[in-house]
Design a protein around this nucleic acid. Structure first.
Length: 567
RNA sequence: UGUCCCGUGGUGUAAUUGGCAACACGUCGCACUCUGGAUGCGAAGAGUCCAGGUUCGAACCCUGGCGGGACAACCA
């Protein structure tokens, strides 16, 4: 279903309906959203949903989207994360203009709001210990009880709160709490803490403050200060909405609307910051931007395009129901994008030497190859062809199974852009029996593009000229986990399901010579193999390192798997 | 034993707000192909968690169940 009001081709969803209703009724004339990350870790694919939603909505409805760092907890947050988050959002293609905000920008205002709340008799300073507060809070099914300090005089509260701010007390000695209802069935309403003492310097405000606001106190009021119309967050904040509304109403300030949606989950991976950290710290992956990581920086290094990630996010939809999107959809998104864009090249990952016996010894032909069959404007390039070439080990079988259309003893196959060759002889290592070389003949009449032969063969394989090929390291990445839901089994640790084959390194692959000019981050389709990207970290002028982004769809592997299953 | 939210093919979403359950991914065929890619065509697969009710008519409204999720950090 297309969105008729905006001319957008994006699918509609319940949030767009709310926005369109608000625009139609005149509740708002312009929408204003925000993306509010906490700078305590790297962004991952799950965050892209919120980023695309908030920035995308603003784009589509001609509104604005702020970037606001939710930096209310100095013990966990660091400037390093602020920088990486900004880089990732920019890379995804979104722009917050000059509206880069921080909850800490509002600490003064938030403090004033707290005083206002105290004066209204709706907040009090509590002297209970952390343990006691927890005890008094009760449980979801049993009411809590009121603190003995709950009915302090307003003046006393004001005095104590000011002294909290002045640094007269130790961490944990006092807290400021809202006075709501200790018997509320909603735990969030049981006199939530709104300020705590933390003698800790903050990455932006330095040592100005030793009291810091809690999320609930900071978030809604920050939304209000910025004039946010639709404050979109994930489902776990549903139970916080009554509190969000209570604060805003108690303060009698502009009231943004909080709307919750389900967060994005993807099969065969984990998304929590803590678990990702575990993978990094315990060495299961090499870094936060390891190409196997679901972090934005990992996906970027792997070779994913921003467009593919945005399309993926679009396709996975916005609803209020928890779900797990198939990794196959992400893979489809990147294939779809790169099929249109990526230059085709011939690369042999696991080389098998082939000598074409009836081809002249010294002869080298320059064959014309198409750069992108989906886009003729990308032109053609020259490919050197000579007597000795490499083909993929997988493309030869001494004892070919049914439906194997590639090379085998006595069989013919087409070399892409070159000739049809026939396998005349198989040379093996006398000790191991391993096939180390093939002797073939070629048919000069079958040169590509000449049409001088009517010979047809079922298979076409890729190859490189042995003397012209360049060496490269190729890193074959695969899904990080072997099961759809690594967190699914309670008795097992998610790390037990790590795919031991998530990375296979091939040190000496043979690539066509044009690849020596590849730039860091440049993406290619290695024909018949997959999409690859020159690694932006480990590659250098004299060392090529390619990452496999994703395999091509491969109907042969399915046939083969099925055949093996039958045996 | 509370409050809030949510149940539609294998997966993710849609259904003009009460009118023959649609699309995408995946799967399986066929065609085409100098990439077993791409592309084109086609198929299978849900009767909408269950049971009642309202209605000419219910995925949608009502009632009651069942199932899943969230909530007891001085985290966000």
């Amino acid at each position: 279903m297309e969105n008729k009001n905006t001319g957008s081709t994006k699918p509609t969803n319940f949030i767009r309906e709310i926005i369109e209703e608000d625009l139609r009724t005149g509740k708002h004339t312009k929408i204003h959203t925000r993306f509010p990350p906490e700078p305590n870790g790297y962004l991952h694919i799950g965050h892209t949903k919120s980023i695309c939603l908030n920035f995308g909505l603003a784009e589509d409805y001609n509104g604005l989207c702020n970037l606001r760092f939710d930096d209310t907890n100095p013990t966990k947050e660091e400037i390093e994360y602020v920088e990486s988050i900004k880089e990732d959002i920019k890379w995804l293609g979104f722009d917050w203009g000059d509206r880069e905000y921080y909850a800490s920008d509002y600490f003064d205002q938030l403090y004033e709001y707290a005083i206002k709340l105290i004066k209204k008799g709706k907040a009090y300073v509590d002297s209970l210990s952390g343990e006691e507060i927890k005890e008094y809070r009760g449980a979801p099914t049993e009411a809590g009880k009121e603190s003995s300090y709950r009915n302090r005089l307003i003046e006393e509260n004001l005095d104590l709160f000011e002294r909290m701010k002045a640094g007269e007390f130790k961490d944990g000695e006092y807290v400021l709490r809202a006075k709501i209802d200790m018997t509320s069935p909603n735990m969030n309403m049981r006199d939530p803490i709104i300020y705590r003492i933390r003698h800790e310097s903050h990455h932006r405000t330095g040592d100005k403050w030793c009291i810091y606001p809690m999320y609930d106190w900071a978030h809604g009021q920050s939304d209000s200060i910025e004039g946010i119309t639709h404050s979109l967050c994930t489902l776990e904040f549903e139970n916080h909405r009554p509190l969000y509304d209570w604060f805003i109403e108690a303060l009698d300030i502009y009231h943004p609307q909080q709307i919750e949606f389900a967060r994005l989950n993807v099969s065969y991976t984990v998304m929590s910051k803590r678990k990702l950290l575990e993978l990094v710290e315990e060495g299961y992956v090499n870094s936060w931007d390891d190409p196997r990581m679901p972090t934005i920086s990992g996906l970027r290094r792997r070779g994913y395009t921003p467009e593919s990630i945005r399309n993926f996010s679009e396709k996975s939809g916005i609803v209020k129901r928890n779900s797990v999107v198939d990794l196959a959809l992400l893979e489809h998104s990147i294939r779809e994008d790169l099929n249109k864009k990526a230059k085709r090249v011939l690369s042999v990952l696991n080389p098998l030497k082939v000598v074409i016996e009836n081809y002249p010894d010294e002869k080298v032909e320059e064959l014309e190859a198409i750069n992108n069959p989906e886009d003729s404007s990308k032109g053609t390039r020259k490919l050197p062809f000579a007597k000795t070439i490499y083909i993929e080990k997988d493309d030869f079988r001494e004892d070919p199974p049914k439906k194997f259309f590639r090379l085998a003893p006595g069989k013919e196959v087409r070399l892409r852009y070159a000739y049809i060759i026939k396998c005349e002889e198989v040379i093996k290592d006398p000790k191991t029996g391993e096939v180390i070389e093939l002797r073939c003949s070629y048919d000069p009449e079958t040169k590509s593009g000449t049409g001088s032969s009517n010979k047809k063969v079922k298979g076409t394989i890729h190859w490189v000229s042995a003397e012209h090929a360049i060496d490269a390291e190729v890193r074959l990445y695969d899904r990080l986990f072997t099961v759809e839901d690594p967190l699914g089994e309670k008795d097992k640790d998610f790390k037990d399901f790590i795919n031991p084959d998530s990375l296979e390194i091939i040190k000496h692959s043979k690539l066509e010579p044009s690849l020596s000019n590849a730039e860091k981050g440049e993406r290619f389709q290695f024909e018949r193999l997959g999409y690859f990207c020159l690694d932006s970290v480990d590659a250098s002028r004299d060392r090529l390192v390619f990452n496999r982004i994703v395999r091509l769809r491969d109907s042969w592997s399915k046939i083969e798997k099925e055949q093996q299953g039958q045996k």
